[in-house]
Design a protein around this nucleic acid. Structure first.
Lengths: 151, 151
DNA sequence: CAGAATCTTCGGAAAATATACGATGGATAA
DNA sequence: TTATCCATCGTATATTTTCCGAAGATTCTG
């Protein structure tokens, strides 16, 4: 991954729908050379996919919450049961196994507070291996993810 | 935003580089009708942009960390100083103002532990309004963000 | 039922993407 | 040093996709 690839990735992170000719101009390559590199970056798995980013509030998700969750134990069955349950809940946008007092950090979006309360009372709390949680309500987004800082 | 728009958004969240003919097939519209709706969704701001998603580890960021941060006070100047500093740090991928014991939740990526330590000792801790933090090291990603669950 | 909205199909121009092929330049080995 | 190989580039060309308008059909709604 040289300077040119880095530059290509930086641009594509910000604008994945840019045309090849525009992209090639910006990195200083011919269209075909640029095209070849992009395909290479895709084939090598550096670019996993392209996606439309949506405006969370505009599509009706008023609430965003981070949840620190703790399990009843670190036994394999409990871990697997919890992770399977999480993977099966589309409202849980992401989930990370973490170090610290808690075991997992989740990110959840909900249309409103009722939906969120329902989710956490009826779905999260009812996972058998689930022991305890701490809710961090996102009051506002100071900085939104717009890609990694390369180079 | 009707059923068709929802369907279009769902698909574009997963694959922002899909061709119009493929997309229109999947939603059951003609190419031009589908094209019109997509442009509308963009113009209305439901779709904010398109982006390439990168494989974090493949591009060399071994470390991902969540940080809960607390300020010395909730005075306006301290808040503004902190947020300005955060916005100026490209290693901080996102930052949310949150409810709870801490004031902010950050997500940070670093190439290795040394880079991370350097970042937090030299850059984060040195923000004047910064008082205290708790690091949640991401040990593994159980579920990755792949878009909101619509409909 | 009438009007509004939205769809479909068709067509063509413009733009973008993909492919083929030859040229250049650096690295390696005789 | 020179020949050869390999990676990467650029130009040119072929193919596909996008964009946008027009005209008529269909669906929804009051």
């Amino acid at each position: 991954m040289d300077k040119l690839d880095t530059r290509i990735l930086s641009i594509l992170q910000k604008d994945g729908a840019i045309s090849m000719s525009n992209l090639s101009d910006q990195v200083g390559l011919s269209i075909s050379a640029c095209h070849r590199r992009v395909k290479m970056l895709e084939a090598d798995g550096l670019i996993t996919n392209y996606a439309a980013r949506l405006n969370r509030k505009a599509i009706g998700f008023e609430i965003q919450v981070f949840i620190e969750a703790k399990l009843v134990s670190q036994r394999r069955e409990d871990i697997q049961a919890f992770e399977a349950a999480i993977l099966d809940m589309p409202e849980v946008l992401e989930c990370h196994l973490i170090s610290g007092d808690f075991d997992y950090l989740l990110r959840v979006a909900a249309r409103n507070t009722e939906d969120y309360e329902k989710l956490y009372r009826e779905r999260l709390s009812s996972i058998p291996s689930f022991a305890q949680m701490k809710t961090l309500l996102s009051l506002s987004t100071v900085k939104e993810f717009r890609g990694f800082h390369l180079g």
